[in-house]
Design a protein around this nucleic acid. Structure first.
Lengths: 337, 337
DNA sequence: CATGTATGCTCAATCGATGAAGCAAAATTG
DNA sequence: CAATTTTGCTTCATCGATTGAGCATACATG
């Protein structure tokens, strides 16, 4: 069948609209970007142009517009994963808050891969992002340097850096509180006061270190010492956590501090693979709506995403002077497990 | 303190690099975008320019580059939420597969808000996206029209439309299988063959309708009729599902088909709010690593995200002729609950 | 009626990268 | 050695929107 070449009704430009309206491209531009009042275009012409733009299905070419303008209004974010509620909430909240402020959010997920993080940061620079939020970056200062040398501001979220302002959870305090809660609970339920296991995270990771510090501190508060063999830090991986637990004999009737929901996935997989699942009590740093109801779960430490993002956007609007590292308290939620 | 104005080491352009290298902007451009072999630039000059670009921290201005080029290589996706594993996996997989193919993925989350969906689609057009994937759109044809009138291809994912090619789960078959599995299980565990409750989703929603059809069909297969009062479809909202369940008296020892993880959130909240939680068996359409281990959960129907995305990218590369609607089988995973 | 000012537009340069066309010098060929 | 080809670059128009400057015309003022 012979096709008629109606194929490329190419996206209309302001030149096309100007032609149709019998006016100049600059009038069209002014009308469509809202500067027409200031540029003394008559209401009559403005309405006509708007109507024609509508009819023609005109959409501004942001590439051209941003090239000419000084500001792109793009705000970038890199984030490790979308596989848990914490990062999911950060991504959703970030988009919503950016839009509220008339900014264009662009998020890229970097799989905790340092090379991808760097690549993504460079990509954001190329998009002329005005500001980049580095969430949970493996090397925040590296990202901050990339931004600085492009004249772009950056803010660290979740994991702090030393070059750019940072907004993180108060990991130490929250871990200390959660640990105390678990210790008290095993004493109450099992009648023993014994050290907990610490499961998940990376030993080099700032947040893990802070939480481990709070964990150990809460033990000391109660006169306990944590044997180093009680700490399982095999990265943010369910499978590695599961494998590590499977290799070790863990006593019945003890307590565990699970350092992330991803580690919790490994933990529950291991737990349910056991022929005779033992009695435990665990608490988890980070929140999940289903994990809440898992048997033996006694509480989750939920990070306060809304407050963290509010702080981030404060910094977006007024860059703080000097190196700041804001710590946001977490919200403890007793579980029903 | 008097600040020295070293402030704007403005982002260097190819003109700046050309100046430094004592060459022309087009040579710089050719070297930096890889077309220099073809444009007969000497290796010597190419190396010098590359070094200078490196030193100066040059990053191409994609706005300018894309304006000039014919192709943007941007591929857009709109997605409702990031609050469950299904959409999370889609987002992560989409980004990875797009990058593998040398495309720039841009994802926007639209909160199941039809107005936001339209706004986001228009924004993608303005970014000169070459293709838009509409995931779980409330009105896929609306989005497809916006794309078509901008000369952009679109593909529906998760929810089908009539104008653009669609890739969805085989909701009917998977719902039928899941329903049969639950029915058999309650017969085995409770010794009764009784209709199940259907919980979650929207009655107007295509996927819900298909699943309901499979649900009813599986009942008929076993000689059962589903009372209409057994269906609770209060949207994709945990709170509304919870509230609806709280208002109704549901018998002990029965089975339920939960139509999404978000409905499951409402269900478990309701369940755990009861003074004396009754004996149930439930299965859930969609998968979650923790929900898997919830007591009384007997199985989850996991959507095959990798296969769905593979199909989507097939369509991205070779647009299918005519209206196609590909149905991808789901993967049943028996639960340990 | 000359002068001033407000109105309603248009012109043209510009943002940074790209690539077709062109040009000079070097290398090859007959 | 003249003619041709190859090499290695540069020039310049272009993508679409923006915006400072400018230019008629209409209107108001002294």
């Amino acid at each position: 069948m012979a096709e008629i070449d109606d194929s490329p009704p190419r996206r209309p430009t302001i030149y096309d609209l100007a032609q149709i309206a019998g006016t100049s491209p600059s009038a069209v531009s002014a009308v469509l970007n809202g500067s027409w009042k200031k540029r003394r275009i008559s209401t009559r012409l403005a309405e006509r142009i708007s109507r024609i733009a509508e009819e023609q299905g005109y959409a501004v070419n942001l590439q051209a517009s941003m090239l000419r303008r000084e500001r792109s209004r793009i705000i970038g974010m890199i984030i490790p994963k979308y596989d848990n509620r914490y990062f999911g909430a950060i991504a959703e909240g970030f988009e919503a808050m950016a839009r509220e402020r008339g900014l264009f959010p662009v998020i890229t997920c970097t799989q905790r891969d340092p090379a991808l993080e760097v690549e993504a940061a460079r990509e954001m620079m190329s998009y002329q992002a005005e500001c980049l939020i580095a969430t949970g970056a493996t090397d925040p200062d590296r990202i901050a340097n990339i931004c600085t040398s492009a004249g772009v501001r950056s803010i660290n979220l979740d994991l702090p850096g030393t070059t750019a302002p940072s907004v993180v959870s108060d990991n130490f305090q929250a871990a200390r509180d959660l640990t105390r809660f678990i210790l008290e609970r095993i004493k109450q339920d099992f009648g023993v006061l014994a050290p907990l296991y610490f499961i998940g995270g990376r030993a080099q990771d700032h947040n893990t270190r802070e939480r481990l510090r709070g964990f150990i501190c809460a033990h000391e508060d109660m006169g306990l010492t944590v044997p180093s063999a009680y700490c399982f830090m095999h990265g943010y991986s369910a499978s590695k956590t599961e494998a590590a637990l499977a290799e070790t004999g863990i006593d019945e009737r003890c307590g565990m501090f699970i350092n992330s929901t991803i580690a919790l996935e490994g933990f529950v997989r291991w737990f349910h693979s056991l022929a005779a699942p033992p009695e435990f009590r665990f608490g988890c740093f980070d929140w999940d709506p289903f994990a809440r109801f898992l048997p033996q779960n006694i509480g989750m430490m939920r990070q306060d995403v809304d407050t963290m993002l509010a702080k981030v956007f404060e910094f977006v609007e007024h860059a703080p002077s000097g190196t700041v590292n804001i710590k946001i308290p977490c919200i403890f939620e007793a579980a029903n497990g």
